[in-house]
Amino acid sequence: LQAFIKTLTGKTFTVEMEPSDTIENLKAKIQDKEGIPPDQQRLIFAGKQLEDGRTLSDYNIQKESTLHLVL
């Protein structure tokens, strides 16, 4: 599935991932794409901060969901 990552500066980019991917995997993909170390990334979806060990499906993240990236 493709999801949108929106930063506080208003920049939006897309990442490809599977519902079974962990938040940790997602942070690694963001690092590959944007060069931001995972330990500096905080991802917010539906008002909740996402925990590394959980999966996208745990948070009911669907295709074309928008996640907010806070540094």
Rank of each mutant, 00 (worst) to 15 (best):
D52A: 06
K6G: 03
L56A: 03
E51C: 06
K6D: 04
I44W: 15
A3P: 06
K48A: 10
T7N: 05
G47Y: 04
E18W: 13
E51P: 02
M17V: 15
Q62K: 12
P19H: 09
L26D: 00
L69S: 00
R42V: 15
A46V: 06
P19R: 09
T9Q: 11
I36H: 10
I5Q: 01
S20N: 13
I23R: 01
T9P: 04
T12H: 08
S57Q: 12
N25W: 09
P37C: 06
L56F: 08
L8A: 14
K48D: 06
L67D: 01
F4P: 02
Q62W: 10
E16L: 12
D32F: 11
G35R: 04
R54V: 06
S20A: 08
Q2F: 14
F45P: 00
A28T: 10
T12A: 07
P37L: 06
E16C: 10
A3R: 02
P37A: 08
P19E: 10
V15H: 01
E16A: 09
L43D: 00
S65G: 07
M17I: 14
L43G: 00
L26F: 03
T55Q: 08
R54W: 11
E18M: 14
K6F: 09
R42C: 11
P37E: 07
L8K: 11
T55S: 09
V70I: 13
V70S: 08
K27D: 00
V70R: 08
A3K: 02
I61T: 06
H68F: 14
K63M: 12
Q49W: 13
D39T: 10
S20Y: 12
I30K: 00
A28D: 06
E34Q: 10
L50A: 02
P19Y: 13
L71G: 06
S20L: 09
L1D: 04
T22G: 03
H68R: 06
K11A: 07
L8Y: 13
S57R: 10
K33R: 12
K27A: 00
R42W: 10
Q31L: 10
Q40M: 10
V15I: 14
K11C: 06
E34P: 00
L26Y: 00
K48M: 13
L1A: 06
S20F: 11
Q2Y: 13
V15A: 01
Q41T: 03
G10S: 03
E24T: 07
Q2E: 09
T22N: 04
D32M: 13
L71N: 07
I36T: 08
D21K: 02
F4R: 11
Q2L: 15
I36E: 01
Q31G: 07
K48T: 13
K33E: 07
I23T: 04
K48N: 10
I44K: 04
T7Q: 05
Q62D: 13
E51I: 07
I23H: 00
P38V: 15
E16W: 14
R42H: 13
G47Q: 03
S57G: 11
K29V: 07
K27M: 03
I44C: 12
N60K: 07
E64M: 09
E34F: 13
I61S: 05
T66C: 05
F13N: 00
V70T: 09
L8R: 12
M17Y: 14
P37Q: 06
Q2V: 15
Q31W: 15
A28Y: 13
G53L: 07
I61P: 05
P38C: 08
Y59N: 02
K11V: 08
D52V: 05
Y59V: 04
L56Q: 00
L8F: 14
G35D: 05
T55W: 05
K29E: 03
D58T: 04
V70G: 04
D52E: 07
Q41P: 01
Q41R: 00
A3F: 15
Q49C: 10
Y59D: 02
E64N: 15
S20D: 12
K11P: 04
G35T: 02
F45G: 02
G10F: 04
M17H: 03
Q2C: 10
T7Y: 14
P37I: 05
K27I: 01
Q2G: 05
I30Y: 01
T55G: 03
L1H: 06
L1C: 06
N25T: 14
K48R: 12
E34L: 15
K27Y: 02
D58Y: 15
D52Q: 04
T66D: 04
N25E: 12
F13T: 02
H68K: 05
